[in-house]
């Protein structure tokens, strides 16, 4: 199987979907002439022309709304929002309209729309450019939210998203774009939306993660193996719908769980997962469920302050040790 980057997986898939269905079109800032702010759409304007690859002005609320309206008439827009921070100016269209139209109008019209956007932060991007808001969208019934961690899943989930008849928020990560993995090139596989995957089997503790934190969890699992700790990694892949059975099945086996996500601790994704585990697997738990998440600050710019504000391998290892010791002192970074 060819080994390609996450970026390449996305780029290939967008090209294939454009070629497969004439109603698919790409829309977003700097995706064409500029070749994409993070080069995800590189070469596609040249290949498919400006009708299919549409450069927009800086007008997120406008063009996201346009994409929703176009989807109502059968187009299948795939919108790029440069980073998730900028979707906030368009959130009304997504939350008040895209998520509700199919249900609220009695199922008469569909909104086959994908919004792709990188979430999270790396490299001192500072407070306004480092945020994680996937939980805001995962909160909304009517939206589907996916967050692949590997090139394989990126491809399979993007295919699923483009072919899905509902609005899908497709969460990427700047730090994943250059990561590599196996992706078959002769197989039109689809990764189903709403289905998690156990990315690594283990016995002692379950780590639940998604997107970049899945990569961190897999590294940690590898490292801890040398210490004789066997970590099972559940990669959510979708935040809505949430694959609760896969999480619960894993926790019932290991009896211990740590949940890690890059967003802020309070009211973040980890809270939902932890609540689910204690509701559905309480009798199987040998220790409290611990959470590892971002420190609750507008991310400071200064290099070291910035670095310590995001969860990483160290904080995950700490929490795993705590949970193995049966301690509830994992939530020290909250208060």
């Amino acid at each position: 199987m060819p080994i390609i980057t996450y970026r390449q997986a996305l780029n290939d898939t967008l090209g294939e979907e454009l070629a497969r269905d004439p109603n698919v079109l790409l829309m977003g800032e700097e995706i064409g002439v500029f070749q994409g702010s993070y080069r995800i759409t590189e070469g596609l304007l040249q290949e498919f022309g400006p009708k299919r690859v549409v450069d927009t002005p800086i007008a997120e609320e406008g063009f996201v709304g346009v994409a929703i309206g176009a989807a109502m008439l059968g187009l299948r827009p795939v919108v790029e929002i440069m980073t998730i921070n900028f979707i906030l100016v368009a959130i009304d269209q997504v939350v008040n309209h895209a998520s509700k139209i199919h249900y609220m109008f009695g199922g008469q019209v569909r909104v086959p729309l994908v919004i792709r956007t990188p979430s999270g932060g790396t490299g001192q991007l500072a407070a306004t450019h480092s945020q994680s808001f996937e939980n805001w969208f995962a909160y909304c019934p009517g939206l589907k939210v996916v967050a692949p961690a590997t090139p394989y899943d990126a491809k399979g989930l993007l295919r699923a998203a483009v072919r899905d008849d509902d609005p899908v928020i497709f969460i990427e990560s700047l730090a994943l774009y250059d990561t590599k993995g196996d992706v078959p090139d002769d197989d039109d596989y689809v990764v189903p939306i709403g289905v998690a995957e156990v990315k690594r089997r283990g016995e002692d503790v379950t780590v639940v993660a998604y997107s970049r934190m899945t990569a961190v969890a897999l590294q940690v699992a590898q490292r801890l193996e040398n210490e004789g700790i066997s970590v099972e990694v559940v990669d959510l892949r979708s935040l809505r719908p949430l694959d609760r059975p896969t999480i619960i099945e894993s926790v019932k086996k290991t009896g211990r769980a740590v949940v890690i996500a890059e967003d802020w601790y309070s009211y973040g994704v980890t809270a939902e997962i932890a609540a689910t585990i204690q509701e559905q697997a309480f009798d199987y738990l040998d220790a409290p469920v611990l959470r590892v998440a971002g420190l609750e600050v507008p991310l400071p710019y200064a290099k070291e302050l910035s670095a310590v504000s995001k969860p990483n391998a160290n904080s995950l290892i700490y929490a795993i040790h705590q949970v193995l010791a049966g301690s509830s002192r994992g939530a020290l970074w909250a208060k």
């Binding site: 001192q124 500072a126 407070a127 306004t128 450019h129 507008p298 400071p300 710019y301 200064a302 302050l305």
Partner: peptide, 10 residues
């Protein structure tokens, strides 16, 4: 000027 919290853009 922003005590290192803001950076170039802030």
């Amino acid at each position: 000027v922003a005590r290192g919290r803001g950076g170039s853009m802030h």
